[in-house]
Lab assay of single mutants.
Amino acid sequence: VTLFVALYDYEARTEDDLSFHKGSKFQILNSSEGDWWEARSLTTGETGYIPSNYVAPV
């Protein structure tokens, strides 16, 4: 499992996005959609889309 960590805070703009804070960790579920990845937050357990340029591999 590849884990990613948030580099910045992000406020969701749609109900499909995940809001998160810098330092939040994610499991990436689908990275084939270009700049928006489907991810599960390891902090909240919620699933949604995150901007790929806001995260980096742990």
Rank of each mutant, 00 (worst) to 15 (best):
58 V>S: 07
14 T>D: 11
58 V>P: 04
41 S>E: 12
27 Q>I: 15
47 T>S: 09
48 G>P: 01
31 S>T: 13
4 F>Q: 03
31 S>P: 10
16 D>R: 15
8 Y>E: 07
52 S>K: 13
4 F>I: 03
16 D>C: 15
39 A>W: 02
20 F>R: 00
15 E>T: 12
52 S>Y: 08
31 S>L: 10
43 T>A: 13
58 V>G: 05
45 G>S: 05
51 P>W: 07
43 T>S: 13
32 S>H: 11
6 A>Y: 02
42 L>C: 15
21 H>C: 14
9 D>Y: 04
1 V>F: 14
57 P>S: 07
16 D>W: 15
10 Y>V: 01
53 N>Y: 10
48 G>F: 04
43 T>V: 11
46 E>R: 09
28 I>N: 01
56 A>I: 13
3 L>Y: 12
11 E>L: 10
33 E>W: 10
41 S>H: 12
17 D>E: 15
26 F>Q: 00
53 N>V: 09
37 W>H: 03
26 F>K: 00
38 E>A: 07
57 P>D: 05
28 I>K: 04
11 E>K: 11
57 P>A: 10
14 T>L: 10
22 K>R: 10
15 E>C: 12
2 T>Q: 13
27 Q>T: 10
21 H>M: 13
22 K>H: 05
20 F>S: 00
41 S>N: 15
34 G>L: 12
54 Y>H: 08
19 S>E: 04
46 E>Y: 07
27 Q>W: 14
52 S>N: 06
6 A>T: 02
32 S>I: 10
19 S>G: 07
30 N>V: 08
15 E>L: 11
47 T>W: 09
35 D>K: 08
9 D>R: 04
10 Y>L: 02
34 G>C: 11
54 Y>C: 10
13 R>M: 12
12 A>F: 02
26 F>I: 04
5 V>I: 13
38 E>N: 07
22 K>E: 07
3 L>H: 10
10 Y>T: 00
32 S>A: 12
40 R>H: 10
58 V>D: 09
44 T>A: 03
23 G>I: 03
10 Y>Q: 00
4 F>M: 08
43 T>W: 07
52 S>F: 08
47 T>G: 03
30 N>M: 07
30 N>Q: 08
32 S>T: 12
12 A>H: 06
23 G>R: 01
41 S>M: 11
18 L>V: 06
56 A>G: 08
44 T>F: 03
21 H>R: 14
6 A>G: 04
48 G>M: 04
51 P>A: 04
7 L>E: 03
55 V>A: 04
57 P>Y: 06
39 A>D: 01
29 L>M: 08
44 T>P: 00
4 F>R: 01
42 L>N: 04
49 Y>S: 06
7 L>W: 04
22 K>D: 01
34 G>Y: 09
16 D>L: 14
43 T>K: 09
10 Y>A: 00
50 I>E: 00
58 V>W: 14
37 W>Q: 03
29 L>Y: 06
23 G>C: 06
39 A>Q: 00
17 D>S: 14
35 D>R: 08
58 V>Y: 13
36 W>E: 03
53 N>S: 14
5 V>S: 04
13 R>C: 10
36 W>C: 08
5 V>Q: 07
5 V>D: 02
33 E>I: 11
51 P>F: 06
49 Y>R: 14
25 K>A: 08
35 D>A: 10
57 P>I: 09
37 W>P: 00
43 T>G: 08
8 Y>K: 08
41 S>F: 06
44 T>S: 09
31 S>A: 13
57 P>W: 05
56 A>F: 08
11 E>Q: 13
19 S>W: 03
29 L>F: 06
21 H>T: 15
31 S>N: 12
37 W>D: 01
24 S>R: 02
53 N>R: 12
54 Y>K: 06
47 T>I: 15
27 Q>H: 12
21 H>Y: 12
15 E>F: 10
18 L>I: 12
16 D>V: 13
25 K>V: 15
4 F>K: 00
53 N>W: 15
42 L>E: 09
43 T>M: 09
21 H>V: 14
17 D>T: 15
26 F>S: 00
44 T>Y: 03
9 D>T: 06
30 N>C: 08
52 S>Q: 07
18 L>C: 04
37 W>C: 04
26 F>G: 00
18 L>R: 01
2 T>L: 13
34 G>V: 12
12 A>S: 12
11 E>R: 08
10 Y>K: 01
19 S>A: 07
5 V>F: 09
33 E>K: 14
8 Y>Q: 08
17 D>M: 14
42 L>A: 06
1 V>Q: 13
29 L>Q: 05
20 F>W: 01
13 R>T: 13
20 F>V: 01
43 T>H: 11
6 A>R: 00
16 D>M: 14
41 S>V: 08
50 I>V: 09
45 G>V: 02
20 F>A: 01
43 T>F: 08
24 S>Y: 14
11 E>T: 13
39 A>P: 01
8 Y>P: 00
29 L>K: 05
36 W>M: 13
35 D>P: 10
21 H>F: 12
13 R>P: 07
29 L>W: 06
40 R>D: 03
31 S>F: 15
37 W>A: 02
44 T>C: 05
56 A>W: 09
26 F>W: 07
8 Y>G: 04
13 R>N: 09
21 H>K: 15
56 A>R: 11
29 L>P: 04
14 T>M: 12
32 S>L: 11
5 V>R: 04
22 K>I: 09
30 N>S: 11
10 Y>M: 02
29 L>D: 04
45 G>R: 03
36 W>Q: 06
37 W>I: 06
23 G>D: 05
43 T>Q: 11
55 V>R: 00
24 S>D: 15
18 L>S: 01
35 D>V: 09
51 P>C: 09
51 P>L: 08
24 S>T: 15
23 G>N: 05
58 V>K: 04
50 I>H: 02
36 W>P: 04
52 S>E: 04
56 A>Q: 10
49 Y>I: 09
9 D>K: 04
22 K>C: 08
38 E>V: 15
32 S>Y: 10
54 Y>I: 06
7 L>I: 10
49 Y>P: 02
45 G>Y: 06
19 S>N: 06
53 N>G: 11
23 G>E: 04
3 L>P: 05
48 G>L: 04
29 L>E: 05
41 S>Y: 06
54 Y>F: 11
53 N>E: 10
